[in-house]
């Protein structure tokens, strides 16, 4: 009974419709920001990076919002291009990671032994610091884009795999699946027609939640010098270079690229969490 009374707590201050509006607003603002960024990135992609020795080391101004570097390159263009690259790698790695997670999650739900093997694999991958594993994988693959891509993909799947596993197990027990099974449909058919549509929202949210981590880790390894090569305009590279000019007071070389990365990552994170709350209001909280 007292429990009942407490359901009124959920009425508190925000009703369902107001909360939905908030969620919409948050999604809309994030989408707007990402759109702005996309436009910026498109614009930047068309701009050649010019080295102009007369325009070296300029602090931010109306003409050069993010300032220029020691070769006179426009930092705004470099940042946008770098972000775009980081984002592409992060997205690709996140999607690969989600694919691994789905595969292993569904596999784990298929039988006792498969489950044991998969949970042991999860243990294995969770038992090493992500970054060390990333460095190791990058090293093994000889660095470069593929190193980062595989490194990030191979390190970020465990938590989503767990979700998919639990969800699949639950689905298998569900009434309609059982009925379909009794009607003689095989698992493959059921998986495609009945399970996938239910797993899809989880998968989408899971992938969205992996992406921010993937981007941050990509930037991290690249910063350490083990990711994308120094010729590529990645954010990690830009920030690593900026370290050399810190003592000369060129703060803008580090501040803006990093801040932009932070904002983009925060956008993805926000989007992921909002959608998570949407698809699954019970488990939503974190």
């Amino acid at each position: 009974m007292i429990r009942k009374a407490h359901t009124f707590l959920s009425f508190r201050s925000t009703s369902w419709s107001a909360r939905r509006l908030q969620a919409w607003l948050s999604v809309a603002s994030v989408a707007l920001l990402l759109l702005l960024f996309a436009i910026g990135a498109l614009w930047a992609a068309g701009q050649p990076i010019v080295t102009a020795l007369t325009l070296r080391n300029l602090p931010p101004s109306a003409a050069y919002w993010f300032g220029t570097d020691w070769l006179g390159r426009d930092m705004l263009i470099r940042t946008l291009q770098g972000l775009q690259l980081s984002l592409q790698v992060g997205l690709a790695a996140g999607i690969m990671s989600a694919a691994i997670a789905t595969l292993l999650g569904v596999l784990a739900a298929s039988g006792k032994w498969a489950d044991r093997v998969v949970s042991w694999l999860i243990d294995l991958f969770l038992s090493m610091p992500h970054l060390v594993l990333l460095i190791l994988i990058s090293f093994i693959l000889g660095g470069g884009v593929q190193g980062v891509l595989f490194g990030v993909a191979l390190t970020h799947w465990p938590s989503l795999a767990r979700v998919i596993r639990a969800e699949t197990l639950q689905l298998r027990q569900a009434e309609f699946i059982q009925v379909s099974r009794r009607m003689g449909n095989n698992w493959l058919w059921i998986g495609w027609h009945h399970m996938l549509p239910h797993l899809l929202p989880q998968l989408l949210v899971g992938t969205l939640l992996i992406i921010p981590h993937a981007i941050l880790h990509e930037a991290g390894v690249t910063f350490l010098g083990m990711g994308l090569s120094a010729q590529q305009p990645a954010i990690g590279i830009i920030l690593a270079e900026s370290m050399r000019y810190l003592s000369t007071g060129m703060w803008w070389l580090a501040l803006f690229p990093g801040l932009s990365l932070l904002i983009i990552v925060r956008c993805f994170d926000r989007l992921g969490h909002t959608l998570q709350r949407w698809t699954d209001p019970h488990r939503a909280r974190n």
Binding site: F8, F11, S13, T14, S15, S17, A18
Partner: peptide, 17 residues
């Protein structure tokens, strides 16, 4: 009654006793 906001600024009271 319990206060519940409906929409942005409006508030509604849900009577219970």
């Amino acid at each position: 009654s319990f206060e519940q906001s409906a929409g942005w600024l409006r508030q509604r009271y849900i009577p219970v006793l």
